[in-house]
């Protein structure tokens, strides 16, 4: 599945996603379910978190994590937006945050604003251009804690200087 970065770059996903039972490979960066921690891995460690996990309960184990994957079981299930914000603003997680599952291009702006920076693309439904273009559709926000680099929320711009 191709990967979209929030700057619009498209790449192949270099991470290996492991299930509950899969063996850890000898080399490579792996994404594992949260329940498998602690775990020794050959390369970088990524974590896939369930949709109903209260991320504020995450402990120091988070410091060795380079990638967190949050899942949208349906585009209408918005819990991962709050999980993302809590990870960025409450837990102060600074690694890569990836959205996976049932995403719509029209939601990308929201995802960037709460702190996601990469997306598993479902290119069978929408062409790649639709995804990259969607990042440009809506760029203004009233949101106070904007995570989009190089841009400030309306309230900050309004009261600047």
């Amino acid at each position: 599945m191709p990967l979209l970065k929030r700057d619009g770059a498209i790449s192949d996903d270099s991470w290996i996603t492991l299930g509950d039972e899969d063996d850890v490979p000898a080399v490579g960066d792996v994404i594992v379910p949260h329940a498998r921690l602690p775990l020794t891995v050959p390369g970088r460690l990524g974590l896939s978190l369930p949709n109903d996990l209260d991320v504020s309960t995450l402990g120091p184990e988070i410091s060795q994590v380079c990638l967190i994957v949050l899942t949208f079981p349906s585009f209408a299930d918005g819990r991962a937006y709050s999980q993302a914000r809590a990870l960025r603003n409450t837990v102060s997680y600074e690694g890569e945050l990836r959205a996976s599952g049932h995403l719509l291009p029209d939601q990308l702006a929201f995802m960037v604003e709460v702190g996601f920076d990469s997306f598993d693309l479902q290119t069978d439904r929408f062409p790649v251009e639709r995804w990259t273009q969607a990042l440009e559709d809506v760029t203004l926000t009233y949101h106070r804690h904007l995570s989009r680099p190089g841009q400030s929320p309306i309230i900050t711009a309004r009261h600047a200087g």
Binding site: D77, Y81, R85, Q107, F110, V138, H143
Partner: peptide, 13 residues
């Protein structure tokens, strides 16, 4: 009104 308009976290409640 402004805060809630297209609030990225609270648009899929």
């Amino acid at each position: 009104r402004q805060w809630s308009s297209l609030h990225p976290e609270f648009s899929f409640l």
